[in-house]
Design a protein around this nucleic acid. Structure first.
Length: 105
DNA sequence: ACCATGACTCCAT
DNA sequence: CATGGAGCCATGG
């Protein structure tokens, strides 16, 4: 297997790099993985969710600050609970990206 | 190589 | 705010 890690692996690593108490959009994760246009691929990667305990995918939201429509671990409600547990205010499945979106200088 | 799938994003209505 | 259509990407069969 003389092959580098797939984009998915990079995506998982990128999600793990999201600081606690902050969220990142799929586009941002895609950019961290190497392709800012692969937001859809990111959604696919997280959908498979190979390691839900290792990957804090609950910190990943869409460009509107909206939580996932069908979260894997117990539902969107669980994702909201996890975010609130980290200090991220969630209002009806929405987070304030202006305050919680991860910024990369 | 082609087709189908999907936790996306943008724009129009 | 809801709905629909088009565009883009990686993976798997």
């Amino acid at each position: 297997m003389t092959r580098n890690k797939t984009f998915y692996e990079r995506i998982y690593a990128a999600v793990c790099e999201i600081p606690r108490g902050r969220v990142a959009t799929y586009g941002q994760v895609a950019a961290m993985a190497g392709n800012g246009n692969a937001a859809r691929a990111v959604g696919n990667a997280l959908h498979r969710n190979p390691a839900p305990v290792v990957i804090p995918c609950h910190r990943v939201v869409n460009a509107q600050g909206r939580l996932a429509p069908h979260f894997a671990f117990g539902g969107d409600a669980e994702q909201q609970r996890l975010l609130e547990a980290e200090g991220v205010e969630v209002r009806d499945h929405h987070v304030d990206l202006k305050k919680y979106q991860m910024r990369t200088p």
